[in-house]
């Protein structure tokens, strides 16, 4: 997914926002299933689903949980499937639960991909222009989290050599030692942060208006991508407002038909979610032709 990674952050950011919106707004089994399959394909193309594997169990359980929970608590609906004791399990509830389940795991899959593609750098870049102070804060946080973790390990190491371990002794002793470590970490980090503050001041922080170094430039392909996504989103929004791409369940479940207009909308949906795939395939073909 090299080409997609290389887009201007505003493009990737818009894509993910759009994809999330679609997964939330278009609650229709066909749309959801198509979207989910495309996201899986994107993951496969990016890293053979390796990033997704870590979340696989969590996603599966959450999906199943939602699927099961809805019929358990929701008895509304006309089409009775079966009854357990006095509990009615309706088709509406099952379908609704299924759709919510796919929607949620779809959203999670989108987020996993977002995390891979939108590096903190890109996010920082997006916010640096609008909220410069926030950007500095974010930058410092990004730096300090690993730093604090490293320091805490170092403190632990040194204290172990003194015979004070957080892994041995009674619970009370361990707790006391751990609190001690945190205290040292905080005092030490504050002390060191004074030097960071000096270094920031010495480089003129907070004296005049801050600008931001942009290492991303908007190119024509970025504008084209933005236009492409905007047009598709406009079509989808129009369709959604006219009642397509959405399965009505309550009060009365609509008959499961798939009119032509809905098919057009589905195409737009797939073209939007599948945007990274299209970009990559295009890149691959042009690469093959050129070489």
């Amino acid at each position: 997914m090299k080409r997609f990674h290389d887009f201007h952050p505003i493009v990737t950011f818009s894509y993910y926002i759009g994809a999330l919106t679609l997964f939330i707004m278009l609650l229709h089994p066909v749309f959801l299933a198509a979207g989910f399959l495309l996201i899986l394909a994107i993951h496969y193309m990016d890293d053979r689903c390796r990033g997704l594997q870590r979340w696989f169990f969590f996603m599966l359980t959450t999906g199943l949980f939602v699927l099961v929970l809805n019929p358990v608590f929701n008895e509304r609906g006309m089409n009775l499937l079966f009854t357990v004791g006095s509990h009615r399990v309706t088709l509406e509830a099952v379908v609704y639960g299924g759709m919510s389940g796919i929607s949620i795991i779809g959203i999670m899959a989108v987020f996993v991909s977002y995390n891979v593609v939108m590096s903190p750098n890109k996010l920082l870049f997006l916010f640096a222009k609008v909220l410069p102070r926030f950007a500095v804060l974010l930058m410092l946080t990004l730096r300090f989290i690993p730093l604090m973790r490293k320091r805490l390990t170092e403190i632990g190491d040194v204290q172990v050599s003194k015979g004070l371990s957080v892994r041995e002794g009674t619970l009370k002793e361990r707790g006391k030692n751990a609190m001690g470590h945190i205290q040292v970490l905080l005092t030490y980090s504050l002390e060191e942060a004074l030097q960071t503050a000096d270094s920031m001041k010495a480089r003129g922080y907070g004296y005049s208006g801050r600008s931001s170094y942009q290492h991303f430039v908007i190119k024509r392909s970025d504008i084209a991508a933005l236009l492409y996504m905007f047009v598709l989103l406009a079509i989808l929004a129009y369709g959604r407002l006219h009642g397509y791409g959405w399965l009505e369940i309550y009060p009365v479940m609509e008959a499961f038909t798939f009119p032509r207009k809905e098919a057009v909308l589905l195409a737009a949906h797939c073209l939007f979610i599948g945007f990274p795939l299209i970009v990559e395939t295009g890149e691959y073909i042009s690469w093959r032709i050129l070489n």
Binding site: M139, R143, P146, T196, D198, S199, A202, G204, Y205, Y213
Partner: peptide
């Protein structure tokens, strides 16, 4: 300053390099 670690503000080298320049606007 003395400590190489403590004067660093940003998490990547490029951001660190341009920190002063950004402050100058």
């Amino acid at each position: 300053f003395q400590d190489p670690e403590n004067q660093v503000v940003a998490d990547t080298v490029l951001h660190e390099l341009v920190f002063g320049l950004e402050n100058m606007g």
